[in-house]
Design a protein around this nucleic acid. Structure first.
Lengths: 266, 266
DNA sequence: TTGCTCCTCACGTCACGTGAGGTGGC
DNA sequence: TTGCTCCTCACGTCACGTGAGGTGGC
């Protein structure tokens, strides 16, 4: 949405074009009392004032967060309404839905792979497969990558600052030493783990090599690269189009873990 | 749904109780022509036959895959209807939605973390934060764990067979050597990478230690453990309730990568 | 006679899309 | 006069939930 020109009233079509919404949507917002234009012409045409436009801008912002129009109305008009609480409830609802959809997706992916060569009509064979698939629930649901660090506290700050991950948290023992770290990265979480002789886990800095790496899909590979470079990470190679269909760059974190950031080309 | 008793007709209430659906739902299925009971009593009560019950079972199966009632009707009644194609379209639609929801979730999580201490009403401050949040799109979207193997082909089979991952695929060069592997594991994909001196990537078997591990959330930890054990993986420790709120067991794969399978307690 | 199940309308849901039929301003 | 925009109904969406008001069988 472009910056509103002050002092100008707009008709519904102009506002629709400027906001990317449809005329019908603006009609509807008036109908439910969410955005009632300040005036009408004699012929009944809607005239939106500056403050109407400002209000629409806020509506649009909250819509993008997935709030219902009813909740948006309350957030804008009821001073006692706690937006943070509403967003919290909303995010939990979203997580519930995501969990369901991930399960469903896992089942469907398995199913389609199993179907592989069959013709595609609903035969008894296919029904048997379906049945087994639907019952099957020893399925993996989510994946958490754990990376080993000698100094997880420094690593935590590095990953937040340089790669832009987060939110997350550090867990400490009674003595105040960090024993565990968690950071949001993409669609899930990355755990930071201490080195451990018992489990044969070491930082790449100690070993001189890594046994795993993490690739992260981002929307703007070059933008992310600029940020990483500016923040002083060791660049392994700058963004380039790879033959396997991704634009990708690669960098090391403070203890030598290899990260790559990529986006599918078209 | 329990196994249908043959030869018995059922009234709508009995069928509802047996199937876990509501009476209203069965009425609705009749209304749209999806499931019309074979008979009615003189008083107009619905009587469902064995084949009606069988049909309802199939409807229920396809519903669990997220198909619309319209598509289910076609799958059951139109012999030319290609169920596989419909499921393919459906899974792509689901992936699109998942992608959107992951982005939204990432934004909301960041936002709530930023809101942290503020009171929760919609102030100008909060609006500014919202605005920056919504614009911000250098955000990470998905994470792919890459594990390094000396012999990715054997590892691929191991992960499929022992841990139950998949579907996936192997990529080979002209000489037929595996250069890359991908396997579905939980909400995303795991890549198998060859050892590489250039990038300082080695298998844990070569190094004698690992720099990362992968945790996978499953629904049935003990069931998964039994399967893993039966298939002969090296168990690091059997399922136990951990102080950090997960029931978890841990095992090594064929090249010594450490995996743990867990579920949140309650 | 009293519960219980059964029946058929019919409205509501959420955020609009999509016409239908008609008017006002450049 | 011709387009274009504007207006107000009003139905449709998807899969039911939730009454309202009434009947039939044990």
């Amino acid at each position: 949405m472009e910056a509103p020109e002050t002092g100008k009233v707009r008709k519904v079509g102009e506002l629709a074009a400027a906001s990317g919404l449809t005329v019908r949507t603006l009609h509807y917002y008036e109908q439910i009392g969410l955005l009632v234009p300040a005036e009408r012409t004699e012929a009944g045409h809607r005239l939106y004032s500056d403050s109407d436009i400002e209000r629409l801008y806020r509506i649009d912002l909250l819509r993008r967060l997935g709030l219902s129009l009813a909740d948006i109305g309350k957030a804008l008009d009821d001073p006692a309404w706690n937006l943070k609480a509403a967003l919290g409830a909303h995010v939990r609802e979203l997580e519930r839905r995501l969990d369901q959809e991930r399960r469903l997706h896992s089942r469907l992916a398995h199913l389609l792979a199993t179907l592989g060569s069959t013709h595609g009509e609903l035969t008894d064979d296919l029904l048997t497969i379906l049945e087994e698939m639907t019952m099957l629930d020893t399925n993996a649901q989510r994946r958490i990558s754990t990376l080993v660090y000698a100094d997880p506290e420094t690593a935590y700050d590095f990953l937040k600052r340089v790669f832009g991950f987060g939110p997350g948290q550090l867990t400490r023992d009674e003595a105040g030493h960090v024993v565990h770290g968690e950071l949001q990265a993409g669609d899930g979480v990355v755990w930071l783990h201490l080195e451990s002789a018992e489990f044969e886990l070491s930082s790449p800095r100690s070993l001189g090599a890594a046994t795993a790496c993490v690739s992260v899909l981002v929307d703007d590979v070059d933008g992310h690269f600029e940020r990483t470079k500016r923040n002083g990470a060791l660049i392994v190679y700058p963004p380039r189009d790879q033959p396997y269909g991704y634009r990708e760059y690669s960098a090391r974190d403070c203890e030598g873990h290899l990260w790559s950031f990529m986006k599918a080309i078209d």
